[in-house]
Design a protein around this nucleic acid. Sequence first.
RNA 1: GGCGCAUUGGUGUAGUUGGUUAACACGCUGCCCUCUCAAGGCAGAGAUCACGGGUUCGAGUCCCGUAUGCGCUACCA
Length: 505
Amino acid sequence: MTVRVRFAPSPTGYLHIGAARSALFNWLYAQKTGGKFLLRIEDTDLQRSTDESTRSIIDGLEWLGLTYDEEIVFQSANADKHRAAAYKLVDEGKAYRDFTPKAERNDATVKQGIAERARAQSVEGADHRSNPFRDLSKAESESRAATGEPFAVRLKVSETGKTHFEDLVFGPQERDYSEIEDLVLLRSDGHPLYNLSVVIDDIEMQITHVIRGQDHLTNTHKQVLLYEALGAGVPLFAHLPLILAPNKGKLSKRKHGEVVSLTTYRDRGFIPAAFRNFLALLGWAPPDGKEVLSVEELVQQFSLEHIHRSPAVFNFQENDPRHWTDEKALWMNAEYIRNMPVEELLPMVKAELRATKLWREEYDDDDREWLLKALELIRQRFFTLKDFSGQGRAYFSDDFDFEEAAVNKNLRKDPRLKELLPALADSLEATDPFTAETAEAALRRFAEDNDVKAGLLINASRTMLTGQSVGPSMFEVFDILGQKRSVERLRSGVPWFDAEVLGDG
RNA sequence: GGCGCAUUGGUGUAGUUGGUUAACACGCUGCCCUCUCAAGGCAGAGAUCACGGGUUCGAGUCCCGUAUGCGCUACCA
């Protein structure tokens, strides 16, 4: 039997990183076993589902490289099937019509209502089989329905017995029927509910392994009951530990903002492979401990057995731009930027430079070699793709900003530089050929002749040429920027030492 | 309230059948390298394995209890 797994998000917002992780694990498992990975959009909550959200889910999966097999299934399209299945269960006596009028609830008070009801039940002992319509005669049930009286459909859960299933992560699970109420399958307006829809669709799609978040672990018992009532084989389950916020609470968009949204990582310059790699490490660990893994290695190493049961904390500090997301994610991204083949990095940098109007068409042909060399040089220190247009701006444009701290530290501190830099420019202009080596020789000779430390000139040059105090080896920078631009930028430094510039600085 | 699940350094994890000084990664500190910052190399700090009992010659690993956190408990998904 070939493995068939699915990712089944509800399109009620951005793609949450926890959901993305579920998608990843499903996908990895499918790749690993040579199975199929399917996508089903659970858009049965008409009020909350949006096309925009569906779009972001599809985009997110594409960005992560999680390609799905077969057509996307939209759950709302199957509502008739879900209803038919529920009515069939009524006919067979496995479910019943509940004519109890629907209690109105609003979203704000549901949780509270649940707790109160539960408390009340626990005082007098819960009896989930006390519904007066549970044992209504078939004839009466049908005649009342025929008059148009509204009814919900509930599953008739047996008085005694237990459900069992084997969870591939959490082990054997068991739950007494007495703890499970006669769950509603169909609302009184005929709308099928989650547990029913999921089960029918999973049967329909011939899902063999249900891999999803732990928040569904206890609900699984209800679904097992449904599989049995429907006479279908029960798939295997694997529940994934939850991903929590730093305070070990729920990780939610409302509370934590955009850090939890997958698209944020795309928009803030993450390499998809890096984020995918990071995500894989949340709740799972490769057997040999090597953490930086290519997709192929990920697929090869992945197994449900190595998923563990305790929730993972996604660590980040709100209000701290440097630690806006998990440090390890940032490190992973830098690792990829630094080490991936530069040709693979190029298209991503191109997109970033395009978006910031720094891209020039020559980079595609005449200047391609130069570009690759420049990327190789500057990527060593970068954390995200954004850095190529930010910190890296001076390599692609003459219009770049000077960091105040860098100017103060490397230029203004030594007034001699006002005279030295133009002279150094002259010296470099006379250097032929102009390479990293010859530039270095020229600068060091110049330093010696003028009796200053080479470091002074090097650091000043770095700030003059890049606006920054940190960056690659200066002679490599001279080489990459070229003789002309290097000389020009060195000569443009005089204003930094003028009184009025000093005044407002 | 009930039921379920979890609990190893700040974080992510290893520690599959109980057996020497609890391992790895991120982060942190110091040193080396050096024109800066990274990277890299080296060294280091940081865990009485939530707590309390037990079983055992011996427990992070098994059992019981407690605490804490999370999940479910809807005519939401």
